[in-house]
Amino acid sequence: MLPVSYYVMLAGALFALGLYGLLTQRSALRLLISVELILNAANINFVAFANHLGQSDGLAFTLFVIALAAAEAAVGLGIFLHLYRHVRTVDVEKTAALRW
């Protein structure tokens, strides 16, 4: 087994990537992908520590997160589809109407 720190660093790198994407990308789909990255980073963390500590709690959480990610992706895609039908774009910079 590799030391846990390697997995944490991997997860951290993925998280950072995802966060970067979330903060800078304009396409809604890319935002979704970034969110998936973040979630999967968390998943890696969970699995790594479950293995490291020998407890199964982390694995249970991983399953939860996967299911949640799937549901959230579905809902998010649905919303963006709907959005596209109305404004013909998925660029979040252009859909900033709910503002002051």
Partner: peptide, 17 residues
């Protein structure tokens, strides 16, 4: 203060973080 509410998702995410 309300200028913060610019309707952009990314801003909100940044605020969250």
């Amino acid at each position: 203060l309300r200028r913060w509410q610019d309707g952009r998702v990314t801003t909100y995410v940044a605020t969250l973080v």
